[in-house]
Design a protein around this nucleic acid. Structure first.
Length: 259
DNA sequence: ATGGTAGACCTTCTA
């Protein structure tokens, strides 16, 4: 089973680019983030024509996440528990796959900038809620892949110019600690396990020629339960997509599991 | 030190 994650930065502005990639890469399951549209505006039919089942948790203008799968999805859940008035569409989860199904979540963690504001507090609170939910999921002892845009740079080796990110919410000690605390429940960072090399970036800003200068960061991740991590075969960052016509600022990452 | 880009939408916010 090949599971992809991709922050598309508006599914409708990106549709041609996204569909071209899906036709070429043909992932079994895909988690999309930053749809920037409500459910009704999601191009469901276009993905159905490519053979996908579609589950969307959309929102007007901002956020929005989706799961696409070639096999039917069961147990579809939208939003994290204990939302307490949180109306951001940042989480969708489902169980899908063939003989050995996998529980997959599409995650769009809050950016949290600027630091020292309620936005940064919201990011940390969201991280804590995700951790609590992940704890419950791990108790199921089944293949689990929590994939998406975590808006977290795990370490200095995950940025081309770490010094540029010192004041940014993505690289604050609190953000990195929240990432570690989630991982330390017993989850595996798929990239770290199969390819610990520096330079595996997944995001390059549109501004200041970041792509041309390779000023990238690694913020799109897969955290795997032991039952999934034991079956991890490869991780592929599709960085060429960043050089295509009208690209997202994030590129797709594909995780291949022997499931 | 600043400004640089992209998307949604209506004027400024988010990233």
């Amino acid at each position: 089973m090949r599971i992809a994650t991709w922050n598309v930065n508006s599914i409708n502005a990106r549709l041609e680019n996204v569909l071209a990639w899906f036709e070429a890469a043909s992932p079994d399951v895909a988690a999309l983030q930053e749809l920037k549209c409500i459910d009704e505006k999601f191009p469901t039919e276009a993905f159905e024509r490519l053979g996908y089942n579609v589950a969307v948790h959309g929102q007007k203008t901002y956020n929005g996440v989706a799961l696409l799968s070639k096999t039917p999805m069961e147990d579809v859940t939208r939003g994290l528990p204990e939302g307490d008035g949180d109306d951001h569409a940042r989480y969708i989860e489902a169980v899908t796959g063939g003989t050995t199904p996998c529980r997959v979540a599409s995650i769009y963690l809050p950016n949290g900038n600027p630091i020292g504001t309620e936005k940064f507090a919201y990011k940390l609170a969201w991280f804590a809620r995700l951790r609590k939910h992940a704890q419950g999921l791990l108790a199921l002892e089944e293949p689990l892949a929590l994939v998406g845009d975590y808006n977290a740079i795990p370490g200095p080796e995950d940025a081309d110019k770490p010094e540029d990110w010192l004041g940014d919410a993505l690289f604050q000690p609190e953000s990195r600690a929240a990432w570690r605390a989630l991982k330390n429940l017993g989850l595996t960072d798929a990239y770290e396990q199969v390819d610990g090399r520096a330079g595996g970036y997944t995001f390059w800003d549109y501004q200041a020629g970041a792509w041309q200068r390779n000023h990238g960061i690694r913020i799109d991740h897969a955290l795997l339960s032991p039952q999934a991590a034991d079956r991890l075969r490869s991780v592929t960052i599709h960085r060429d997509v960043r050089a295509t016509e009208k690209p997202s600022d994030h590129v797709p990452v594909v995780f291949e599991l022997d499931l």
